[in-house]
């Protein structure tokens, strides 16, 4: 699946309810874990909920919903 070109942003900067397509997970200590959880390039991702104080956030990707901290969401680049 070719990602639809648009504006490239970091997942942590998306607002609640905003959708995007994952461009890549930048290499980091946790990037393997993120990929294994289904944050794969080309996948659609939606920010479902934002916790009080803006952190953590809950995203739905490849059929499941999970929470991650903003610092980890900053490792995921998305096209919106």
């Amino acid at each position: 699946m070719e990602p639809k070109k648009g504006e490239k942003r970091l997942l942590c900067d998306l607002a609640q309810g905003q959708r995007g397509t994952i461009h890549q997970v930048v290499p980091c200590a946790m990037c393997e874990k993120l990929l294994e959880l289904g944050c794969l390039p080309g996948e659609a991702v939606t920010v479902e909920h934002v916790a009080p104080l803006g952190d953590p956030i809950a995203i739905s990707v490849t059929g499941s919903c999970f929470m991650l901290r903003k610092a980890d969401a900053a490792r995921i680049e998305v096209w919106v």
Partner: peptide
């Protein structure tokens, strides 16, 4: 550690 925390919201 990196201080990451992932949790599924089933």
């Amino acid at each position: 550690t990196s201080g990451s925390f992932f949790l599924e919201l089933p």
